[in-house]
Amino acid sequence: MTIAPARHNGELGQAAWSDAQLLYALEEVVEKELNRHLKIAKDWMPHEYVPWSDGRNFPGPLDGEAWDPAQSKVSDIGRIALVVNLLTEDNLPSYHHEIATLFGRDGAWGTWVHRWTAEEGRHGIVMRDYLLTSRAVDPDQLEQFRMAHMSEGFESDNAHSMLHSVAYVAFQELATRISHRNTGHHSGDPVCDRMLARIATDENLHMVFYRNLLGAAFEMAPDQTMCAVRDVVTGFRMPGHGMPGFERSAARMAIGGIYNMRIHHDDVLQPVLRYLKVLEIGGLGPAGLAAQEELGLFMDGLDSQARKFDERQAAILARREANRRA
């Protein structure tokens, strides 16, 4: 079977690929990356990371002990970030629907979709078991937030094309890895830190899969891929943006060093763009060149904004330390 000639798109300056053509053309790359992933990824047991001996009943039919913040071993910022991270994982059914609809359920694409979903499912399982067993968070509030967040579902900001979705998850998986890892570091609980480090390892492998796929897309359709990356980077939002109280939680996580503008620029966007040499790609048409230039200007502007955030963060933390010592 041969791929039908891509239709010419004057705006892009190149022959434009349809989603169906790209899915077919990238199937071999997906199979290669899937095999690499399966060879490297290590199965692990969620229950082995949960401190079950710390568990006890909550109020209700089993007439247990009510939750109190003093029972939590994690820091305040750790508790906030853990709830945000878990609620993000909880929306897995919506994420699965999104990528299964876009990538399909057959062949290497389908195998990857189901494998990715199974691995992500472990993350939600172990995080919830840890949070409830260790009494790290208010269980009633956690369930209320879960119901509200999942009732809203999830709809991607990047439903423009298959390339938009691939570009988004390449950055989002790395952002999730960084958020989990920093949450563990700031949690104050070695058990939590170890659990989130295990999750972060998975997220990094997922990022590598999508990053390499994005690199192959640049070789096949450089203008279209550059435009998709430009759109994703300049409009990026984490998938949990619709959860209850997200803006306030995100602000506190930013000041607390979990995830902020500086981290987003230095540890998420820059590594992917640099690895793929996105700002150095040549041979682009008019639209691709314009997108590349816009992307470079955006990154410069984001770096300037991050410097201003760094200054504000330092001032806030200094005031807090002064108040603590007073």
Rank of each mutant, 00 (worst) to 15 (best):
I80S: 00
L23A: 12
V84G: 01
Q71A: 03
D193A: 12
V169C: 05
A6Y: 03
A170Q: 06
A217M: 11
V278N: 02
F145N: 09
V232D: 07
V208F: 04
K277H: 12
R36M: 04
V268D: 01
A200V: 03
M220L: 15
F236V: 06
I263Q: 02
A175V: 14
R7F: 11
R79K: 13
L131V: 08
N182W: 00
R56G: 04
T2A: 06
T88D: 12
P286K: 03
G78E: 08
Q14A: 14
H160Y: 09
P59F: 10
G121V: 05
V137R: 02
T117E: 11
L38N: 11
W67R: 07
G104N: 09
M220N: 02
G257M: 04
W52Y: 04
A170Y: 04
Y24Q: 15
A315M: 10
M162G: 01
A322Q: 14
G242F: 05
V126F: 05
Q14I: 14
L102P: 00
G184D: 01
D140Y: 09
W112F: 13
F209M: 08
I258T: 03
V84C: 10
Q21L: 12
R307T: 10
R237C: 12
T111E: 10
H97D: 11
A216G: 09
S151Q: 10
H160I: 13
E280I: 04
D267L: 13
V229L: 07
A70Y: 00
A81V: 13
Y49A: 08
V84N: 01
I258N: 05
H265Q: 06
A254E: 15
H265S: 13
L86D: 01
P239L: 15
W112S: 03
E98K: 01
G282I: 04
I258K: 00
F209E: 03
G153R: 03
A159K: 02
S179V: 14
W17V: 08
R198G: 01
T183H: 07
V166G: 03
A314D: 12
P61F: 10
A216L: 08
R135K: 06
A251I: 08
T176S: 09
T234L: 09
S156H: 05
S249Q: 03
E155P: 00
I199K: 02
N35R: 14
P190T: 13
M207E: 13
A200W: 03
R177A: 15
Q292T: 09
G240S: 15
L26P: 02
V84S: 00
Q141I: 03
A322P: 00
N9Q: 10
D129G: 01
F298K: 04
L174C: 02
L62Q: 14
G13Y: 01
P5C: 11
S134F: 02
G10I: 06
E33A: 01
A100S: 15
T133N: 01
R262L: 03
R128E: 15
G188F: 08
H241A: 13
G245E: 11
R211V: 02
H206P: 02
G188R: 08
H186Q: 13
R115Y: 14
S156L: 08
A254T: 11
K39R: 10
H264F: 11
V272I: 15
T88E: 05
R262I: 06
L302H: 08
M243L: 03
A159Q: 10
P271H: 04
A251F: 07
V50G: 07
